[in-house]
Structure formats: C-alpha cells, structure tokens
Amino acid sequence: MLSIDRSIVDAIVAHARRDHPDEACGVVAGPAGSDTPTRHIPMDNAARSMTFYEFDSMEQLRVWREMDDRDEEPVVIYHSHTATEAYPSRTDISFAGEPGAHYLLVSTREPDTEEIRSFRIVDGVVTEEPVRIVDAGVDPHAVQSYMFGQSPATVDYECSGR
C-alpha cells in the first residue's frame, strides 16, 4: 500500500495536466527506510513525447546525489499516460530499476477525472497496490483509500498480453 499526502498527489496531477499531451514524470523522495513520500521533485521529460518519458540523465544524477546527501530515497517514481490507462506498459516494466519504489501512474486521458494507480515492479513482475490518500492538513486520522481498476493484484507481464 502507498500512503501519500493529498497535497503531493494534487501537485503530481497538476504537473501531469500541465504537460499534457506529453507525458510528465518525477519523483517523491522520503527518508530512507520510512516508505513515506515527503518531497515532490517534478523532473523534465527529456523525451518530450506523448508516448515515452525519460529522465534527463544529468538532472537525475543531481537529484539522486541530493537524495543521498539528505539520507533520502526515491519512495515514489511517477509518470503520466496521456491517452491510455494508468497501467505499466512493457517499456515501464523493462526499465523499472528501483525495486523499493512505488511506481505511480496517472492517466490524464479524461479531461475531468484522473486515474491514479500504484504498482510495485520487481524482476518484471507487476503488483498493483492500494493508494491511501492522507489529508494531513485537515485531520491526520481522516483517510480515504482507493483501489482502482479491476485487474488482478499480481500480473506476470510475460503472460498478460498487454
């Protein structure tokens, strides 16, 4: 399960809307080992594409070093799909190189509603997980849980046919 503050989710969605129809991407860093995303870092999509995203390698080095210096890790790695569902593509799975991260996907294909889903991607296996959006500013105990989509919780991508 991914627990994430509503203000961070709002900032991610705003970033995805801003860059639409290109894909948007970024990171939410958090203290190492905490599994808590606290610092939103929007990244440039060096591919500037509607169907592909890629961190700029120099920006990534700077951001990853900064996380290291602050004893943080990439808790969430997010990107948007702008015309399709918020589900990892084969390319997403091939590239997924942070086994500890929550891979958050936002679909901006509908202008009025966002589809937000979170996945673990380890050794080519995709596991969807619930997203718990925390309203820290209002009441720390007031939470809403979402589990989007009807796909099974674990999908072996070799057999998924996606």
């Binding site: 894909e23 961190f55 799909h81 593509s89 084969r90 590239f95 996606r162």
Partner: peptide
C-alpha cells in the same frame, strides 16, 4: 564512477520495447 538505473518508460510500451 556512479551507476544509476535509467528512469524511462511510457505508454507506447509494446512497440518501443519490441524496437529495443
């Protein structure tokens, strides 16, 4: 020397992965 996993992907998954 620093090694990092490249962070990339995207919706056009099947065709892009097949091309790679």
């Amino acid at each position: 020397v620093t090694i990092l996993p490249a962070v990339a992907g995207g919706a056009f998954g099947f065709a892009a992965a097949a091309a790679i």
